[in-house]
Design a binder for these strands. Sequence first.
DNA 1: TTCTTACGTAAGCATTCGCTTACACTATAG
DNA 2: CTATAGTGTAAGCGAATGCTTACGTAAGAA
Lengths: 107, 107
Amino acid sequence: MDTALKAIADPKRREILRLVWSSEMPATDIASHFHDVTRSAISQHLGVLRHANLICERRAGNRRLYRANVEEMARLRTFLDQYWSGGLDRLKTAAEAAQQKKENRHG
Amino acid sequence: MDTALKAIADPKRREILRLVWSSEMPATDIASHFHDVTRSAISQHLGVLRHANLICERRAGNRRLYRANVEEMARLRTFLDQYWSGGLDRLKTAAEAAQQKKENRHG
DNA sequence: TTCTTACGTAAGCATTCGCTTACACTATAG
DNA sequence: CTATAGTGTAAGCGAATGCTTACGTAAGAA
């Protein structure tokens, strides 16, 4: 999960994910969207995303078609949502513990 | 925004944020929660979080009390939510464009 | 004042990152 | 077969990261 989080922390990789979110795209097309870096750099970014399981690869003849792994991204989103709500959960747990204590005192 | 994302990509920093989420805590107490690294390392993590505007610092006598900057975290969350829904937006836009085209053909 | 506590920070080091160039490989075209 | 897209990968490099030790400094304690 940490790998995925670190992967999306990079703006280029987020942009790549955007490109292959709703449709698959060959590596060259992906690379040609970035005019400030080499195709090799993008290929390495694709490697990072693949290693984080955030994209899937399909080979078609000469090409490699990429698409976002939406399930993994959903998992990542859920992880973060749980993290955001963690503070509230913590408050809730503390409140319940206090309540329990109170009841024990009174029982 | 990128700074904040990279900041929370680190598990120790996420744990620190958890600690100061619902109540402020002095730096020493924060550091004492981590038994595998030095106080200095935690201090530097606090610096990263501060630089990302994810925590607020308040000085009280000798101590520095930290608490999570929930507004900034909310902003980060919103940013990510928009990112997650970006794929859907893209589909929607594409669908609308197709519809527009269709209407033009028929008009 | 002198000690002690609670911190930030500089220096140094090993690791990782993002990038480039150069090369290797595969599949199709000729 | 040779040539040419399409693509990953190794090597190398400068910058950033995460860590440690050592030091600096401000605020109370004695």
